[in-house]
């Protein structure tokens, strides 16, 4: 399996969440912060490439769409009203897959999962079947920063949208890195977080050994 492109949008939140729409080449009506963050990362990864129609899409996120879920829960449990239809729809995880597929004119598989380490082995299976895979890991912050700190601790607040374009070897095209020695085995301590993969890809280093909670692999730049 080879990495042919990647993106790493990582924003430290100081006073308020940034407007992600300004990052987008194609804007979506009725979209929210999570959807825009997702699309921005995917656009920066794909750039002008035309992807095969059967490219699989994987989006991984531990907490999913926090702000719109909060808004809908507030409407239901505090205001005691029905949510706005498109607010409800934006809480549904498959909607993000829809917008990515529409943006890049894809018709293949679309899967939303809970973490990078859940998504990566499934992506490997698709690549072994000869398919390309667009894999993103998206983390949204709560716009009420005090609430965010209450939920997730007092540390730095970060929003991120990090993407990989994975594929079998493409003839006449130079890859960024090769994934080797993949091993699916649980470990009591994870040495690395997925963000380190993207930092490695941005760096001058040639090799990186990823050891997560449930899998390990080696990345080798060409």
């Amino acid at each position: 399996m080879y990495i042919y492109s990647f993106s790493n949008i990582t924003q430290i939140v100081k006073d308020k969440l940034s407007d992600k729409k300004i990052l987008l080449n194609k804007k979506i009506n009725r979209s929210d912060n999570f959807i825009n963050l997702t699309l921005a990362g995917a656009e920066q990864c794909v750039k002008e490439q035309k992807l095969p129609k059967d490219t699989s899409i994987y989006i991984a996120s531990h907490n999913g769409n926090l702000n719109t879920t909060l808004k809908v829960l507030d409407t239901i449990f505090i205001q005691k009203k029905l949510p706005m239809p498109f607010n409800f729809l934006n809480t549904v995880n498959s909607i993000k897959l829809f917008y990515i597929a529409k943006r890049f004119e894809l018709e293949g598989k679309g899967i939303f999962v809970d973490s990078f380490e859940s998504a990566f082995p499934q992506a490997l299976v698709d690549v072994r079947q000869g398919k390309s895979v667009l894999l993103g890991v998206v983390t949204e912050a709560i716009s009420d920063l005090n609430l965010h700190r209450e939920k997730f601790g007092a540390g730095e607040i970060v929003e991120s949208s990090r993407w990989l374009l994975l594929s079998p070897k493409i003839i006449d095209r130079k890859e960024i890195a090769k994934v080797e020695e993949f091993n699916l085995q649980r470990s009591t301590t994870a040495k690395n977080l997925e963000e380190e993969i993207f930092l490695f890809l941005e760096s001058d280093k040639k090799e990186f050994d990823f050891q997560g909670k449930s899998l390990s692999f080696q990345l080798q730049k060409s």
Partner: peptide
Amino acid sequence: ESYQVMVSTACTSSSN
């Protein structure tokens, strides 16, 4: 102790 994943794709979550 093997691989674990939560799949969430609306009505197709468990068929997927």
